[in-house]
Amino acid sequence: MDTTADLLFLNEEVALRINPFSEGEYLVIQTHPQEKSLKVSKRSFDYESAKKYCELENLGHDYATFELRIFHDGNLWTVDASGNRRRISQQQDWKVAPQYLEAIHDNDNHGEIIVCFCSYPYFHGVTAQISGSGEVVEFWHSVTCLVDDHGREIHSCPNCHISLVDELDDDSDDFYQQITQPAVCIGCANYHGQEYAEELLICAIHPYGWDGVSCPDFTESDNNKLDKTVK
Rank of each mutant, 00 (worst) to 15 (best):
C116I: 06
E48F: 09
Q99P: 09
D227Q: 08
P182I: 06
D169I: 14
I114A: 13
A50L: 00
L59Y: 06
A81S: 15
N159Q: 09
A97Q: 10
G83Q: 00
K42V: 12
H110A: 14
A189Y: 04
D149E: 15
D2N: 10
N11Q: 11
F71W: 11
N109A: 11
S89I: 02
H161G: 03
K51Q: 03
E112K: 11
I202N: 06
R43K: 04
F218Y: 13
S44E: 01
H155R: 09
S156Q: 12
L201V: 11
E112M: 11
I130A: 06
I113A: 11
I162R: 08
P98L: 09
Y176L: 12
D46Y: 03
E167P: 10
I130R: 02
C54Y: 03
G209F: 00
N107F: 08
C116V: 12
P98V: 06
R87K: 13
Q34T: 14
G132P: 05
F117R: 05
N84W: 11
H61W: 07
S142F: 11
I130N: 12
A189P: 00
I104S: 06
P20S: 04
L201I: 15
P207G: 01
A64M: 07
C118A: 04
C118P: 05
L59M: 06
R69A: 05
N159L: 12
T219M: 05
Q177M: 15
H161N: 10
A15F: 05
G209T: 00
D62R: 09
A81K: 10
S119L: 01
H105M: 03
A15G: 15
D170L: 08
